[in-house]
């Protein structure tokens, strides 16, 4: 059974037509399932946990990056913390032109076109980034000034103003040498770009960031404070992907 998690913003009337077309397409393809609207539930983790226990095979986030951030965490936690975890697939139906970089990197096309990708069921395991008690799929970002990164046996000090990005998944690279991060290599890519266009790049399994008073954003959705420890859950999420994804 598929369970579709609709984000709050889809309640707006401007999305009615898109949602109607989407539901018709899903029914035509025989992919229809239960719909849960985020606005109507208080605890998304409990709701998803309960659906998985009741036999949900695929959890589908319908919305944008923020919807993915909220729903994927519940699926990951179920896989990571359950005594006998049930195999649950994850999928994204991206709605709207913006804020869908996670779906883009996974090769999933927008709205109705995503239904064909779900039908094709091309499944890949991707790593999940861990920041303290939070999970992220795409990236974490923070200002670089006065940040210290403690890595195995050494530490990096960044004095200049700029941005530190901790990347797990990306559609294309802004990184020097056009390196495209691999979300299935068991590592996180740290990219530091300072104001004077100096770039640094390092790939690691775990590290700690210390920075006075600087906040860190996970998947452009949640703000957390440093110091914080980062790690990876290798192959932490089984996800249905499109042909035009950014990785093998």
């Amino acid at each position: 059974m598929n369970v579709y998690i609709y984000d709050d913003f889809l309640n707006k009337s401007k999305y009615n037509r898109t949602i109607n077309r989407l539901e018709i397409k899903l029914t035509d393809l025989g992919l229809n399932g239960k719909i849960i609207r985020l606005g109507a539930i208080k605890n998304i983790h409990d709701a998803i946990e309960s659906e998985i226990k009741n036999g949900a095979k695929t959890i589908v986030a319908v919305g944008n990056n923020e919807t993915v951030f909220k729903t994927a965490a519940a699926v990951i936690e179920h896989q990571a913390l359950s005594f006998v975890p049930q195999k649950t697939l994850f999928f994204i139906i991206p709605i709207g032109k913006n804020d869908n970089s996670i779906a883009d990197a996974l090769g999933i096309k927008r709205e109705v076109e995503a239904c064909n990708t779900l039908l094709a069921r091309r499944i890949k395991k991707i790593d999940i980034g861990v920041a303290g008690h939070n999970y992220f799929i795409e990236k974490a970002e923070m200002p670089s000034e006065n940040a210290i990164l403690e890595i195995d046996g050494y530490h990096l000090e960044v004095k200049e103003k700029g941005v530190i990005s901790i990347i797990n998944l990306a559609k294309k690279s802004n990184i020097i040498g056009e390196k495209i991060p691999k979300p299935n290599d068991g590592k996180l890519d740290i990219h530091i770009k300072t104001r004077d266009k100096e770039e640094s790049f390092i790939s690691v399994k775990s590290f700690k960031i210390i920075s006075k008073g600087q906040a860190l954003f996970l998947d452009d959705s949640v703000e957390i404070k440093t110091p914080i420890e980062f790690g990876v859950i290798p192959g932490g999420l089984e996800i249905v992907v499109g042909k035009e994804r950014s990785f093998e």
């Binding site: 000090e157 004095k159 020097i176 040498g177 530091i192 100096e198 640094s200 790049f201």
Partner: peptide, 20 residues
């Protein structure tokens, strides 16, 4: 060189410790 490099430490970075 940047295409092949696994690690790049830019000019604004100071590294202390055993970098292996």
């Amino acid at each position: 060189k940047f295409k092949d490099a696994e690690t790049i430490i830019g000019g604004s970075i100071k590294v202390k410790g055993n970098f292996h």
